[in-house]
Amino acid sequence: MEIEFQQVGKKYESGQEALSQVSFHLQQGEMAFLTGHSGAGKSTLMKLIMMIERQSYGKILIDGVDLRTLGAGSIPYHRRRVGVVFQNHQLLFDRSVFHNVALPLMISGAEPEQIAKRVRAALDKVGLLGKEKFNPQALSGGEQQRVGIARAVVNRPQLLLADEPTGNLDPKLSAEIMNLFQEFHRLGTTVMVATHDLALVARMRHRVLTLNKGRIVNDGGFG
């Protein structure tokens, strides 16, 4: 999936400007990090791509389609093409790991056999195949994070968005998670990861977009 921001801004009713004049172009299959201090606008930028919020001005093109032309009825279908790992929308503890990962497939009416196959494949990719029947609460923080990633990729999205996916994890686990994203990138998925873990970003050698007070202050090299 291809993402293009043209002079995008987001102002809240309070007058606070979360993003201003943001422009960048992410090619199909590209992987990029989004860094910046907390409150710099990383989450807002991702919410605009997911159409959780709408920009105040400027143009966002996803595969050439202006998001402003999509009505409320198209939003669910837009979201199905994007896999997300968001901090505040985590797993549901009233069902098994399997059913958590199966959610994106169930909403689009996939066949039960197809669901089982794809969920196992996704859990296999994140190394949790043996734990499909567990309740997510019984898993460690790192494992829960990986279940979230499995849920994000189970529908084979064209774009993978992750907001602080290594937030509470130790460096070794963080590196593992990042390697996972890198694998999906190698398989052709466009990947965008918001993180403030600069050391990790530096090691990964991908494009880095740095936000400061809602503006892109650096776009390019790693580190």
């Binding site: 997911m50 959780i52 009825g73 939003i75 669910p76 279908y77 837009h78 979201r79 199905r80 997300v84 968001f86 929308h89 549901l92 009233d94 959610l103 994106p104 909403i107 689009s108 849920r151 529908n155």
Partner: peptide
């Protein structure tokens, strides 16, 4: 509520 939110996020229709 949590479930509704997750469903919205992964693209469930209303």
């Amino acid at each position: 509520r949590d479930e509704v939110m997750v469903l919205k996020l992964v693209g469930a229709t209303n």
